[in-house]
């Protein structure tokens, strides 16, 4: 469905050093440098997949999405989406896709969302019957109700985002690029959006690429994740595999019925926290079964809990590692 090969995007930017003197100097002579926003990315995505697209700020996520939706020309390499070359911006292609950007809106500010929907119906040339059916479905799924008849400016951020999403789906896109769709939303609204996105994908078989700052979005929605960093691909696979790769240890929490000394606990793994009645340890995945067996056999264990490290932690570790690597280089 989506195929990227050797995709690159380099910018030439003007250096603007701070200070009045430098600014005056730049009146006459400008210095440029090349920024490699995306520097050789390959992957392909099959129809109906949900893929999370991760990376630290400035990794090139949005640039990649913009190239895949035809807003940016690649410097080199190729993108195809359902057989189309996005940069040609053929109407056939544009009717199949949608890019939703959490920070940019298409709804007309002083008119109710219903008017924007009607406008999109005309622009995307959606038959009236399909439009009515789809709008009804979206209204139910997203619980829009009366919202679509209120001027957009009167809606709260969450309500606006729901209406925005409905507007993006009114032409039934087969490919959906979601760039930070839940940014700024509260937790319950995030959950609602996630549920909706998953249902939309399941019911319509739409292909979906999602970038998000909230790891929970990605964990809940995307069986597959692609991580890019400094414009290059650094991981492509299952989310669990990514976690295992970054953090080979799991977290083992033990609660004791009688005090246990530090030395006794230390045999099991790396200690994160130790109190007489409780210990938190990091244990290698492969050694976990043995560690649990040993704990149960030798210690007064009252309660035991094994969990994956929180995703946010995994990501911040992954990104800070790459930052450190960059600083060394």
């Amino acid at each position: 469905m989506i195929r990227l090969s050797g995709l690159r995007k380099h910018y030439r930017v003007h250096k603007r050093p701070p200070g009045l003197k430098a600014a005056l100097k730049s009146l006459f002579k400008r210095e440029y440098e090349i920024v490699k926003a995306v520097d050789g990315i390959d992957f392909s995505i099959s129809p109906g997949e949900r893929v999370g697209f991760l990376g630290p700020n400035g990794a090139g996520k949005t640039t990649t999405l913009k190239m895949a939706s035809g807003l940016l020309h690649p410097t080199s390499g190729e993108v195809t989406v359902d057989g189309h070359t996005p940069q040609k911006r053929e109407n056939e292609f544009l009717k199949k896709i949608m890019l939703v950007m959490g920070q940019k809106q298409q709804l007309m500010w002083d008119l109710p969302p219903a008017d924007t929907y009607e406008l999109n119906r005309a622009i995307y040339d959606v038959p009236r019957a399909d439009f009515t059916k789809r709008l009804k479905e979206l209204t139910e799924l997203l619980e829009l109700g009366e919202l679509v008849t209120k001027p957009t400016r009167q809606l709260s951020l969450g309500e606006r985002m729901k209406c925005e999403l409905a507007g993006a789906l009114i032409h039934g896109p087969k490919v959906l690029f979601l760039d930070e769709p839940t940014i700024g939303l509260d937790v319950s609204m995030q959950v609602a959006m996630r549920d909706f996105i998953r249902r939309y994908n399941e019911e319509h078989g739409a292909t979906l690429i999602l970038t998000s700052h909230y790891m929970d979005d990605v964990a809940a929605l995307c069986p597959r994740v692609i991580v890019i960093d400094k414009g290059a691909l650094s991981f492509d696979g299952k989310l669990e595999d990514l976690v295992t790769q970054v953090r080979p240890e799991k977290r083992l929490t033990l609660r004791f019925s009688a005090p246990v000394s530090r030395e006794q606990v230390a045999e099991l793994g790396t200690i994160v926290k130790h109190e007489p009645a409780q210990a938190v340890l990091l244990v290698k995945q492969s050694a976990m079964n043995a560690a649990v067996a040993k704990a149960l056999a030798t210690l007064p264990v009252q309660d035991l809990n094994v969990e994956n490290p929180p995703l946010e932690e995994v990501m911040s570790e992954l990104f800070s590692r790459s930052r450190a690597a960059r600083e060394v280089a």
Binding site: N91, D110, L111, D115, L119, D125
Partner: peptide, 25 residues
């Protein structure tokens, strides 16, 4: 075909544009 679709959209565009004009009177 393409231009035809664009032409068909024009009345709606004008209608919505007019609502906007009313909002910004």
């Amino acid at each position: 075909m393409k231009t035809f679709a664009a032409l068909r959209a024009i009345p709606t565009l004008l209608k919505i544009g007019f609502s906007e004009a009313v909002a910004y009177r």
